[in-house]
Nucleic acid binder design. Structure first.
Lengths: 352, 352
DNA sequence: CCGCTGAGCCAAAACCTTTTGGCAACCCGA
DNA sequence: TCGGGTTGCCAAAAGGTTTTGGCTCAGCGG
């Protein structure tokens, strides 16, 4: 390969124009298929083939400068890139962006870096002239969107705007939890326990609320004896489950706050000589990547729509951008995306 | 907040110049602290404070156009964003980029999308004038780098360039595995089994090689009876471990190809009435996010340096970019980053 | 033969910076 | 008073594209 390290002098639209014997205007029109513009078929073919032969690569920076649109969207993640779920959000956003011919620029802000750092990060994105910004957080708390984000359309993932003015998308954990309870109820379970997380994060609420709603919809009276809690790790699931299972009127099913707690529940069951799912059904929440599928029996759980939220954010953002107008204000309701139940093997028919 | 939705007319360097009563040249010099340039202290203060008051935000697109450097680096991931580990690579790259004042633009290519798609993705990044490209893959196979990548400095993560010309970084799985064996040997284990993956990926090699090297270094003769294999999932770990453990001369420790297989090993041990780690020690590989810590007893394993590889890639890339010259060719040896052992509770002293 | 229309193309401005190559004004020593 | 060296600033070009507002020419109806 002789020409392999030949230095390639960047070829610009001007070079194409010269080679084709037309003006740069014409080349631009042809290559962009500008509507309402007239160029003979012959010329267009010539321009196109010459551009290809020369290996013309448009310079998006220059284009962006002129059109005042960078075709980039910024993804500002607050501590999220650290979590195992992060990838899915990024992936969803990225693929949707690709679909719209946009590129994702990402910055991760550390939670403990403070508001100033976050504003600086937002500014960095804006300096890059991103057409819009996605602000993604781990736990859905209310945030007051940094002022700088107002310079550009923005959407939130996993958080609510305090002013209720920025579109937001969140997982509908309550419905997911309710669905899970419905599943258990349909399998004949009446005594369904909930191993709650003892940590107070807003997400907690949704799961508990959903659990209660599920019971109600199944016509099962609430029984606070069946609600225990522990730290949201395997250890917490273990202790909570032990408490729930180690008595005569033990429940026939345990709904764990998350998959890790469910692992603890498995252990508790095992130690008490109870088999899953034959003696006790166990379900989790999060569909945490390798856990749920690797455990035995495979864990029935609920998946968080990370990918979908990422994609939703980009889609919504592009809509906002298109509708240009300076009025991507006006209050909106947050969008709650469904959390699908993923059926595996940890639930059995109950016949007690 | 009355002025909240006041439309902010973008303020440019020109506005600052006008307000400060100086030329744009001067403003540029002051704000960029251009060396070898003379401006009175007074003027500089004035310019700076006016820029701040006006809320001047430089337009990096315009700057990039002029300086021919976008200060962006492209991260091209091949299917990787899908894996749970992806986040760590992205995070490492992003944080290192931030440190250098660079922004990360990411694109995920699907493995099955074919070479053309991948070239298109590379081109998309180049159109954006990225200063360099990181190409990250899941399994480290040899790749022949798309031609388009030659337009710009590039580095590989998790793969080797077939031509041996592009810098690459990979996890040193062999050493990690050897360390793990050393750990077991130090704990008195002599009969150490290996539950290998039956799938033939290059990564497999490293772990097996490391296992053998570890044995050798510990002065333990190789015994092929102690090597079994199965699919690289919990199921495979289960069957392989059953085979290894269900006999009289069973090993006192099992090194599993990965954490998921280790989960299978746990189950096999449990079914045979063997306790971990008292009766059999088990170790894994990957330090897969929630598994290793949630399992009981917590799994001793080896972590893959994803974060470090991401950071290394960016650091190396910036070095290449700085050294500008068109000669970021010249062959290089790949860099192998250490895989640290992470000690938990699944290894016990052996005294048989 | 004139005027008008539409087809096909183009020159130049604009986008916002950085950077080159100055030019005045001042000071100082001779 | 003049020459030479600083100091402090600036005008204008350049970077690669899109877009506006043309211009020219051919064809056609009158």
């Amino acid at each position: 390969m002789p020409d392999e390290d030949a230095v390639v002098p960047k070829v610009g639209i001007r070079d194409v124009a010269r080679a084709a014997g037309v003006s740069v205007t014409t080349v631009s029109h042809v290559l962009n298929e500008t509507p309402h513009t007239r160029t003979s078929e012959a010329t267009r073919d010539r321009v196109r083939s010459i551009a290809r032969d020369l290996g013309y690569t448009p310079n998006r920076l220059a284009r962006g400068l002129r059109t005042r649109a960078s075709d980039m969207i910024g993804l500002l993640t607050e501590e999220i890139a650290t979590t195992p779920h992060a990838g899915r959000i990024i992936l969803g956003a990225q693929e949707e962006a690709s679909r719209h011919n946009l590129t994702l620029a990402i910055i991760n802000s550390h939670l403990d870096a403070g508001a100033d750092a976050r504003r600086a990060d937002a500014r960095a994105l804006i300096e890059r002239q991103v057409d819009g910004i996605i602000y993604a957080t781990v736990f859905h708390h209310e945030v007051s969107v940094p002022r700088e984000l107002r310079a550009v359309p923005a959407v939130l993932i996993g958080a609510l705007d305090r002013q209720g003015v920025v579109p937001a998308v969140l997982p509908d954990e309550a419905s997911g939890a309710a669905d899970l309870v419905a599943l258990l109820a349909d399998a004949g379970h009446r005594r369904i326990a909930f191993a709650d997380s003892s940590i107070e994060v807003p997400a907690t609420k949704g799961r508990l609320v959903g659990y209660l709603r599920g019971l109600e919809q199944a016509g099962i009276p609430r029984d606070d004896q069946l609600i225990a809690s522990g730290v949201s790790e395997a250890g917490g699931g273990y202790t909570a489950s032990l408490e729930l299972l180690d008595r005569d009127d033990r429940p026939s099913a345990i709904f764990c706050y998350n998959d890790r707690m469910a692992m603890g529940a498995y252990r508790a069951a095992q130690e008490l000589g109870l088999r899953v799912p034959d003696d006790v059904s166990i379900v989790g929440f999060d569909d945490q990547a390798p856990i749920a599928a690797s455990v035995h029996p495979a864990l029935t759980t609920v998946a968080l729509p990370h990918y979908e939220m990422g994609a939703w954010a980009v889609a919504t953002l592009t809509r906002l951008i298109q509708s240009s107008s300076t009025s991507w204000y006006r209050s909106t309701h947050p969008t709650w995306l469904p959390c699908p139940v993923v059926l595996r093997e940890s639930v059995a028919q109950n016949n007690r």
